[in-house]
């Protein structure tokens, strides 16, 4: 069965000033798959991820070249509404970044800025989102508490809930578990597998076991180039390229 790709990256380059950090990357991301991007530090995996919701717009010298399409629409089109794009493409950052507000207000934030003011709808969505990120049972009695009082793992799940609340289609995760302990990491991983039923997930990770455990597709990036991309089981058991094999067996990186 041929599925229409959710995200299509074609011959994409990306520059910081003069430096070319993404070099001719082409890949299709399937809907409702977990796609992981692995590679050594500084290979451009976070940059590539941040191109998918145009988070790099904030960096003044950044310049994309080539095409990234989501559902067939070029997201770098100057006429495209970036705010609308970011609502459809949620993001969870490497370091949990809850706002210094209450747990409730953190999750409600995205709804409020997108113009939802009905209290009942907001309350329902907050509960739904917290359940969706498997945090509800831990926080339901203290929604008014400051989110900064949560543990690191809870904070990261709160950030997932915050992203879920605006009902995105795609969720980008930038090393979401790298700042967490093993137990919290396991919870995040379970959550990702659960979320896959409804969302398309692209995750950048340093942890190869993690990529192997949770993702359907894996992309191996090195020095801005896409070395290999395919089914996760293929990448980890019978990689086609020598470089991929060297990396996943830990010979470098």
């Amino acid at each position: 069965m041929i599925v229409k790709p959710k995200i299509r990256i074609s011959n994409f380059n990306f520059y910081y000033g003069e430096a070319k950090v993404i070099k001719g990357v082409s890949m299709d991301v399937h809907p409702k798959y977990v796609t992981s991007i692995i590679g050594p530090s500084g290979c451009g995996k976070s940059t590539l991820l941040r191109c998918l919701n145009r988070m790099n717009d904030l960096i003044l010298s950044a310049r994309p070249e080539g095409k990234i399409e989501i559902d067939g629409v070029d997201i770098n089109d100057p006429a495209l509404d970036v705010v609308g794009l970011r609502k459809r493409v949620g993001m969870v950052f490497q370091k949990p970044n809850p706002f210094p507000k209450s747990i409730f207000d953190n999750v409600a934030y995205g709804l409020r800025v997108n113009g939802v003011s009905d209290k009942i709808i907001i309350e329902r969505k907050v509960e739904q989102s917290l359940k969706g990120s498997a945090l509800w049972d831990e926080v339901k009695d203290r929604l008014k508490d400051n989110a900064l009082n949560l543990s690191g793992g809870q904070q990261q799940r709160l950030c997932v809930a915050r992203a879920l609340a605006v009902e995105p289609e795609i969720i980008l995760m930038d090393e979401p578990a790298s700042a967490l302990d093993p137990i919290a990491t396991a919870k995040i991983e379970e959550l990702i597998v659960e979320l896959k039923k409804q969302y398309t997930i692209v995750i950048v990770t340093h942890n190869m076991q993690q990529a192997a455990r949770i993702s359907d597709q894996t992309a191996f990036l090195m020095q801005g180039e896409l070395i290999e991309y395919g089914k996760t089981s293929d990448i980890f058991t019978k990689p086609k390229k020598k470089m991929t094999e060297d990396y996943i067996t830990g010979r470098f990186g």
Partner: peptide, 15 residues
């Protein structure tokens, strides 16, 4: 004010 505050809200579709 850390950049993550700005990024966090922009990523949720805030202007």
């Amino acid at each position: 004010v850390p950049r993550s505050f700005r990024e966090g809200s922009l990523a949720l579709g805030a202007t």
